[in-house]
């Protein structure tokens, strides 16, 4: 009780207070300095009319779908294959998870170098004889976002692999024995029995990846700085730019509030499942 009071204070004071403050400012006409002139939803209307913001959201959605999809597929395949009692399981696991330990800045810096148009991967793969379009993904406004996706999947697939592996391993091992005795092929066992058990793991992964996609900032700062042009602008960068450089606090806080709502929408199903389901079981 008493010991938690600093935390309670912090939670209610700082956390909720800040969120409320930010939301409040989004309803004002603040620019460089805050003023408390209430203007209703006009900042939000401004946002919808700002091309940069629309493009940011658009980019975030494309990025999010590709990122989640890529991580889920690769992470899942890795988990299933590693689960096959392979030798060197530890080694494989370690190799696929280490990018998760790196900062997004480090990841961004490396992949920016790898995608270098004249000296990077594309040139090296061409030299090896592989037909890769040697335009330079990063400098092409249509493909730059996918370069970000590749770097992110490299970083995040390991996490999904761990979550899926943990889900796979939580299945009663006697079920495997039972299917062997019944003569049910491996593949069918995965498809009809194991996979349906995995949906909590899939849900957890999707929510965590989705929230990461909404929040993406560091990677963009390191790899593309939003470019070429505004091809890789993202909402978080929009907020940061308008809070500091472009000094439009009202617009920035409105954007931040929208990000908050997006995260809450993603979080609710997961919270409902864990929190309320345990309640019901009690």
């Amino acid at each position: 009780m008493l010991a938690m009071s600093p935390t309670a204070l912090f939670v209610f004071g700082v956390y909720i207070g800040c969120i409320v403050w930010t939301c409040a400012i989004s309803f004002t006409s603040s620019r460089i300095l805050p003023n408390y002139e209430f203007v209703g939803l006009s900042q939000y209307y401004r946002l919808m009319a700002t091309e940069r913001w629309i493009v940011s959201v658009h980019n975030m959605v494309i990025y999010g779908i590709a990122y989640i999809g890529g991580c889920l597929i690769i992470g899942f395949l890795l988990a299933v294959f590693i689960d096959q009692k392979v030798r060197f399981e530890n080694t494989f696991r370690t190799i696929h998870l280490f990018p998760y330990a790196l900062s997004f800045i480090v990841t961004g810096a490396v992949w920016q170098w790898l995608f270098n148009p004249t000296m990077g991967l594309e040139r090296a793969l061409n030299e090896l004889g592989l037909p890769v379009p040697g335009i330079g993904m990063l400098s092409n406004p249509h493909t730059a976002i996918y370069a970000l996706v590749i770097a992110s999947v490299w970083q995040g697939a390991g996490l999904v692999m761990i979550i899926m592996l943990s889900g796979l391993r939580s299945v009663d091992p006697d079920i495997w024995k039972a299917t062997r005795v019944e003569g049910i092929p491996h593949f069918q066992t995965y498809l009809r029995i194991i996979l349906p058990e995995l949906h909590p793991a899939v849900l957890t992964s999707v929510v965590m990846l989705g929230i990461a996609a909404v929040k993406i900032y560091d990677l963009v700062a390191a790899m593309t700085q939003g470019g070429p042009g505004i091809a890789t602008e993202v909402p978080a960068k929009f907020v940061m730019d308008h809070l500091f450089g472009r000094a439009n606090v009202g617009l920035a806080t409105a954007a931040a509030t929208l990000m908050l709502i997006a995260v809450l929408c993603l979080l609710t199903p997961l919270l409902y499942l864990t929190y309320f389901r345990t309640r019901r079981q009690q």
Binding site: D172, D174, K177, R180, G183, I193, E197
Partner: peptide, 20 residues
């Protein structure tokens, strides 16, 4: 031989029923 080819049926301690 594989278990399925031995002409056996087996019952486990944890029942191992297919949950869904």
């Amino acid at each position: 031989s594989e278990p399925k080819d031995r002409g056996i049926g087996m019952v486990f301690q944890s029942y191992a029923l297919y949950p869904r």
